[in-house]
Write a protein that binds this DNA or RNA. Structure first.
Length: 246
DNA sequence: AATGTATGCAACCGCGACGAA
DNA sequence: ATTCGTCGCGGTTGCATACAT
Protein backbone atom coordinates (compact mmCIF):
# COMPACT_ATOMS: atom_id res chain seq x y z
CA UNK A 1 0.00 0.00 0.00
CA UNK A 2 2.32 2.64 -1.22
CA UNK A 3 1.90 6.27 -0.73
CA UNK A 4 1.06 8.22 -3.84
CA UNK A 5 3.71 10.73 -4.84
CA UNK A 6 3.01 14.31 -3.93
CA UNK A 7 3.34 15.31 -7.53
CA UNK A 8 4.13 14.12 -10.98
CA UNK A 9 7.87 13.83 -10.59
CA UNK A 10 8.55 13.08 -14.23
CA UNK A 11 7.62 16.60 -15.26
CA UNK A 12 8.95 18.68 -12.40
CA UNK A 13 12.16 20.59 -12.00
CA UNK A 14 14.37 19.96 -9.03
CA UNK A 15 17.29 21.70 -7.46
CA UNK A 16 18.02 25.38 -7.27
CA UNK A 17 15.33 27.83 -8.25
CA UNK A 18 15.90 30.22 -11.12
CA UNK A 19 15.09 33.91 -11.06
CA UNK A 20 12.26 33.31 -13.48
CA UNK A 21 10.70 30.65 -11.29
CA UNK A 22 10.97 32.92 -8.28
CA UNK A 23 9.26 35.73 -10.13
CA UNK A 24 6.48 33.46 -11.30
CA UNK A 25 5.88 32.20 -7.80
CA UNK A 26 5.98 35.66 -6.24
CA UNK A 27 3.66 37.19 -8.78
CA UNK A 28 1.22 34.32 -8.51
CA UNK A 29 1.06 34.45 -4.73
CA UNK A 30 0.77 38.22 -4.77
CA UNK A 31 -2.17 37.91 -7.10
CA UNK A 32 -3.91 34.90 -5.61
CA UNK A 33 -2.50 34.39 -2.17
CA UNK A 34 -1.25 31.15 -0.71
CA UNK A 35 -3.90 28.79 -1.86
CA UNK A 36 -3.65 25.10 -2.52
CA UNK A 37 0.01 24.28 -2.88
CA UNK A 38 -0.69 21.20 -4.92
CA UNK A 39 -2.44 23.06 -7.67
CA UNK A 40 -0.38 26.22 -7.39
CA UNK A 41 2.54 25.16 -9.60
CA UNK A 42 0.30 24.40 -12.54
CA UNK A 43 -1.70 27.56 -12.05
CA UNK A 44 1.46 29.62 -11.76
CA UNK A 45 3.07 27.98 -14.76
CA UNK A 46 5.81 26.35 -12.75
CA UNK A 47 7.29 22.93 -13.36
CA UNK A 48 7.71 22.31 -9.66
CA UNK A 49 5.89 20.24 -7.13
CA UNK A 50 3.71 22.01 -4.61
CA UNK A 51 5.94 21.14 -1.73
CA UNK A 52 8.87 22.72 -3.46
CA UNK A 53 6.89 25.90 -4.11
CA UNK A 54 5.75 26.09 -0.53
CA UNK A 55 9.26 25.62 0.77
CA UNK A 56 10.69 28.20 -1.58
CA UNK A 57 8.08 30.73 -0.61
CA UNK A 58 8.26 30.15 3.12
CA UNK A 59 12.00 29.92 3.41
CA UNK A 60 13.15 32.41 0.86
CA UNK A 61 10.60 34.52 -0.94
CA UNK A 62 8.21 35.66 1.78
CA UNK A 63 8.37 39.44 2.01
CA UNK A 64 8.43 39.49 5.80
CA UNK A 65 11.65 37.52 6.09
CA UNK A 66 14.46 39.24 7.92
CA UNK A 67 17.48 37.59 6.33
CA UNK A 68 20.83 38.69 7.59
CA UNK A 69 22.74 37.62 10.66
CA UNK A 70 21.14 36.53 13.88
CA UNK A 71 21.51 38.92 16.76
CA UNK A 72 22.86 37.94 20.14
CA UNK A 73 19.35 38.25 21.56
CA UNK A 74 18.01 35.91 18.94
CA UNK A 75 20.82 33.47 19.71
CA UNK A 76 19.94 33.38 23.37
CA UNK A 77 16.24 33.11 22.66
CA UNK A 78 16.81 30.18 20.35
CA UNK A 79 18.92 28.45 22.95
CA UNK A 80 16.30 28.93 25.63
CA UNK A 81 13.47 27.85 23.39
CA UNK A 82 15.41 24.82 22.25
CA UNK A 83 16.00 23.91 25.86
CA UNK A 84 12.29 23.98 26.37
CA UNK A 85 10.97 22.65 23.09
CA UNK A 86 13.74 20.54 21.64
CA UNK A 87 13.98 20.33 17.88
CA UNK A 88 10.58 21.87 17.35
CA UNK A 89 11.94 24.33 14.86
CA UNK A 90 8.60 25.56 13.68
CA UNK A 91 7.58 26.42 17.22
CA UNK A 92 10.87 28.16 17.83
CA UNK A 93 10.49 30.03 14.57
CA UNK A 94 7.09 31.16 15.73
CA UNK A 95 8.76 33.17 18.46
CA UNK A 96 11.25 34.77 16.11
CA UNK A 97 9.50 37.08 13.67
CA UNK A 98 11.02 37.04 10.23
CA UNK A 99 12.88 33.80 10.79
CA UNK A 100 11.96 30.45 9.33
CA UNK A 101 12.18 27.02 10.85
CA UNK A 102 14.67 25.96 8.22
CA UNK A 103 16.83 28.98 8.85
CA UNK A 104 16.83 28.42 12.58
CA UNK A 105 17.50 24.73 12.16
CA UNK A 106 20.47 25.46 9.94
CA UNK A 107 21.69 28.16 12.26
CA UNK A 108 21.41 25.84 15.21
CA UNK A 109 23.36 23.11 13.50
CA UNK A 110 26.09 25.38 12.19
CA UNK A 111 26.53 28.01 14.87
CA UNK A 112 24.73 27.49 18.12
CA UNK A 113 25.73 23.89 18.60
CA UNK A 114 29.33 24.94 18.42
CA UNK A 115 28.70 27.91 20.66
CA UNK A 116 27.18 25.71 23.35
CA UNK A 117 29.91 23.12 23.05
CA UNK A 118 32.49 25.84 23.54
CA UNK A 119 30.64 26.81 26.72
CA UNK A 120 30.77 23.21 27.86
CA UNK A 121 27.05 22.75 27.36
CA UNK A 122 25.55 19.76 25.64
CA UNK A 123 23.40 21.13 22.81
CA UNK A 124 20.88 18.32 23.14
CA UNK A 125 20.38 18.20 26.88
CA UNK A 126 21.44 21.76 27.61
CA UNK A 127 23.33 20.37 30.53
CA UNK A 128 27.04 20.18 31.20
CA UNK A 129 28.86 17.99 28.71
CA UNK A 130 30.57 15.96 31.40
CA UNK A 131 28.60 14.71 34.33
CA UNK A 132 24.94 14.19 34.83
CA UNK A 133 24.16 17.36 36.69
CA UNK A 134 20.86 19.04 36.21
CA UNK A 135 20.54 20.58 32.81
CA UNK A 136 20.96 24.28 32.44
CA UNK A 137 17.56 24.39 30.83
CA UNK A 138 16.14 21.31 32.32
CA UNK A 139 12.65 21.31 30.99
CA UNK A 140 11.72 17.88 29.77
CA UNK A 141 13.24 17.52 26.37
CA UNK A 142 10.60 16.61 23.85
CA UNK A 143 13.03 14.81 21.62
CA UNK A 144 14.05 12.56 24.45
CA UNK A 145 10.66 11.36 25.45
CA UNK A 146 8.35 8.84 23.93
CA UNK A 147 5.43 11.26 23.99
CA UNK A 148 6.88 14.70 23.59
CA UNK A 149 3.65 16.65 23.48
CA UNK A 150 2.37 14.90 26.54
CA UNK A 151 5.59 15.36 28.37
CA UNK A 152 5.46 19.11 28.04
CA UNK A 153 2.09 19.26 29.66
CA UNK A 154 2.71 16.48 32.08
CA UNK A 155 5.70 18.32 33.37
CA UNK A 156 3.38 21.11 34.29
CA UNK A 157 0.55 19.25 35.85
CA UNK A 158 2.56 16.67 37.62
CA UNK A 159 5.45 18.70 38.83
CA UNK A 160 3.15 21.30 40.20
CA UNK A 161 2.00 18.79 42.68
CA UNK A 162 5.16 16.82 43.10
CA UNK A 163 7.43 19.76 43.61
CA UNK A 164 10.97 18.73 42.83
CA UNK A 165 13.36 21.03 41.04
CA UNK A 166 10.78 22.63 38.85
CA UNK A 167 11.30 26.04 40.37
CA UNK A 168 14.97 25.87 39.67
CA UNK A 169 14.29 24.77 36.16
CA UNK A 170 12.01 27.64 35.49
CA UNK A 171 14.60 30.23 36.33
CA UNK A 172 16.12 30.02 32.94
CA UNK A 173 12.80 30.84 31.33
CA UNK A 174 11.41 33.59 33.41
CA UNK A 175 12.39 36.21 30.92
CA UNK A 176 10.71 34.30 28.12
CA UNK A 177 7.26 34.92 26.88
CA UNK A 178 6.13 31.37 26.79
CA UNK A 179 2.61 32.03 25.74
CA UNK A 180 3.22 29.93 22.71
CA UNK A 181 0.78 31.99 20.81
CA UNK A 182 2.83 30.79 18.01
CA UNK A 183 2.30 32.98 15.07
CA UNK A 184 2.56 30.09 12.72
CA UNK A 185 3.73 31.83 9.60
CA UNK A 186 1.15 31.73 6.85
CA UNK A 187 -1.36 28.99 7.16
CA UNK A 188 -3.34 28.12 4.13
CA UNK A 189 -6.90 29.35 4.25
CA UNK A 190 -8.06 25.77 4.25
CA UNK A 191 -6.56 25.18 7.66
CA UNK A 192 -7.10 28.53 9.23
CA UNK A 193 -10.51 29.68 8.31
CA UNK A 194 -11.14 33.06 9.86
CA UNK A 195 -14.67 31.96 10.51
CA UNK A 196 -13.62 28.99 12.53
CA UNK A 197 -15.08 29.11 16.01
CA UNK A 198 -11.65 28.57 17.45
CA UNK A 199 -10.96 32.24 17.85
CA UNK A 200 -13.77 32.90 20.18
CA UNK A 201 -13.18 29.68 22.00
CA UNK A 202 -9.58 30.58 22.50
CA UNK A 203 -10.26 33.98 23.85
CA UNK A 204 -13.30 33.71 25.94
CA UNK A 205 -15.81 30.96 26.13
CA UNK A 206 -13.81 27.77 26.36
CA UNK A 207 -12.37 26.71 29.66
CA UNK A 208 -9.92 24.68 27.56
CA UNK A 209 -8.32 27.80 26.23
CA UNK A 210 -5.22 27.93 28.33
CA UNK A 211 -1.92 28.96 26.89
CA UNK A 212 1.13 26.78 27.16
CA UNK A 213 2.75 28.93 29.78
CA UNK A 214 -0.28 28.32 31.91
CA UNK A 215 0.13 24.65 31.28
CA UNK A 216 3.69 24.95 32.42
CA UNK A 217 2.65 26.69 35.56
CA UNK A 218 3.68 30.18 34.54
CA UNK A 219 0.27 31.73 34.63
CA UNK A 220 1.08 33.81 37.62
CA UNK A 221 4.23 35.11 36.10
CA UNK A 222 4.87 37.87 33.64
CA UNK A 223 5.66 35.25 31.09
CA UNK A 224 2.01 34.49 30.65
CA UNK A 225 0.20 36.54 28.11
CA UNK A 226 -2.49 34.12 27.10
CA UNK A 227 -5.16 36.62 27.91
CA UNK A 228 -3.82 38.91 25.25
CA UNK A 229 -3.61 36.56 22.34
CA UNK A 230 -6.14 36.63 19.58
CA UNK A 231 -4.48 33.97 17.52
CA UNK A 232 -6.70 30.95 16.82
CA UNK A 233 -3.61 28.83 16.29
CA UNK A 234 -2.92 29.05 19.97
CA UNK A 235 -5.84 26.86 20.63
CA UNK A 236 -4.81 24.40 17.97
CA UNK A 237 -1.55 23.83 19.79
CA UNK A 238 -3.20 23.75 23.15
CA UNK A 239 -5.87 21.38 22.02
CA UNK A 240 -3.25 18.97 20.80
CA UNK A 241 -1.51 19.18 24.11
CA UNK A 242 -4.76 18.55 25.85
CA UNK A 243 -5.42 15.54 23.69
CA UNK A 244 -1.97 14.20 24.29
CA UNK A 245 -2.62 14.29 27.98
CA UNK A 246 -5.68 12.10 27.75
C1' DA B 1 47.55 28.81 -8.91
C1' DA B 2 45.80 24.32 -7.91
C1' DT B 3 43.89 21.17 -4.89
C1' DG B 4 41.69 19.52 -0.70
C1' DT B 5 38.75 20.37 3.23
C1' DA B 6 35.36 22.75 6.00
C1' DT B 7 31.36 25.40 6.34
C1' DG B 8 26.78 27.31 5.39
C1' DC B 9 22.62 27.23 3.20
C1' DA B 10 18.91 25.85 0.05
C1' DA B 11 16.33 22.19 -1.18
C1' DC B 12 14.62 17.42 -1.01
C1' DC B 13 12.61 13.34 1.23
C1' DG B 14 9.76 10.69 4.17
C1' DC B 15 6.48 10.60 7.57
C1' DG B 16 2.75 12.01 10.63
C1' DA B 17 -1.31 14.87 11.30
C1' DC B 18 -5.42 16.51 9.76
C1' DG B 19 -9.78 17.23 7.27
C1' DA B 20 -13.00 15.76 3.83
C1' DA B 21 -15.43 12.24 1.52
C1' DA C 1 -14.70 3.78 10.96
C1' DT C 2 -11.97 4.00 7.01
C1' DT C 3 -9.64 5.86 3.07
C1' DC C 4 -7.59 9.42 0.52
C1' DG C 5 -5.47 13.84 -0.51
C1' DT C 6 -2.95 17.55 1.23
C1' DC C 7 -0.11 20.11 4.28
C1' DG C 8 3.59 20.89 7.43
C1' DC C 9 7.52 19.34 10.00
C1' DG C 10 12.09 17.51 11.02
C1' DG C 11 16.03 15.14 9.28
C1' DT C 12 19.17 14.80 5.71
C1' DT C 13 21.55 15.70 1.44
C1' DG C 14 24.09 18.16 -1.95
C1' DC C 15 25.90 22.20 -3.91
C1' DA C 16 28.43 26.60 -3.66
C1' DT C 17 31.64 29.20 -1.39
C1' DA C 18 35.39 30.15 1.87
C1' DC C 19 39.47 28.85 3.76
C1' DA C 20 43.75 26.16 4.34
C1' DT C 21 47.65 23.79 2.48
Amino acid sequence: MGRSPCCEKAHTNKGAWTKEEDLKLISYIKAHGEGCWRSLPKAAGLLRCGKSCRLRWINYLRPDLKRGNFTEEEDELIIKLHGLLGNKWSLIAGRLPGRTDNEIKNYWNTHIKRKLLSRGIDPQTHGPINGGATAAFAAPHPSETAAPKASATDSCDETNSSGGSQDDDRDGYLDLNLALSISLPHRSPKRSQPSEPLTSAATSSSPQAICLCCHLGFQSSEACSCHTTQNPHVLRVIRRLEEAQH
